[in-house]
Amino acid sequence: MEQWLSLFEGFKYNLILFFVTILCAVPLGLLITFCSMSKFKPLSFVSKVFVWIIRGTPLMLQLFVIYYAPGILFNTPMRSRLIAAIIAFIVNYASYFSEIYRGGIEGIPKGQYEAGQVLGLTKTQVFTKVVLFQVIKRIVPPMGNEIMTLVKDTSLARIIGVGEIMMSAERFSKEGLIWPLFSTGLFFLAMCGILTILFGKLEKKLDYYKS
């Protein structure tokens, strides 16, 4: 019983990491998309290089860098391991999301924008009233995938000592009790199961039309 409680205690951190990351990375990703699709070349170049670096290096390495670099470079150590982990996850996932958004936006036929324009819609209205919904429909499946990966990636926070579920379980395995470590899988499975159902429902809801 004590072991289970300890695992729940640890999983709380996984959940915090998960929800805060989703909440911040979803809009930040859109911002990155707009930057990399911008007609202002320097901005789009910088944001593309940024996305390349983030997607091209291991998340584990990014966790190290964000946790240790401020202390080494600027002599101002990160106060909170959890905040360092949250920042790393947000930046990493926003980059992945931004590429999913970009694919979704670029996949909308030009005719939709043109129809909006000749009907006298403003550029903002074309985006919010015509394009956005179609983009959402397109990106739900790949977003579901990415979000599922995030659930499991939260365990990486252990590497900079965030007391999440893996770390809780390791404490017991050091004392020779291995089953709590294996049981962590159940938590991730449960979470992913719930998300699978939710995304399935969402996809079905958006399935009322075909484009």
Binding site: G111, Q112, A115, Q117, G120, T122, S211
Partner: peptide
């Protein structure tokens, strides 16, 4: 620009209706 645009209506070859 929009005011000028609205002088005209345009029907496209591929309809371009809004699917949603």
């Amino acid at each position: 620009m929009r005011r000028r645009q609205l002088n005209f209506g345009l029907v496209f070859q591929s309809f371009n209706l809004f699917p949603q």
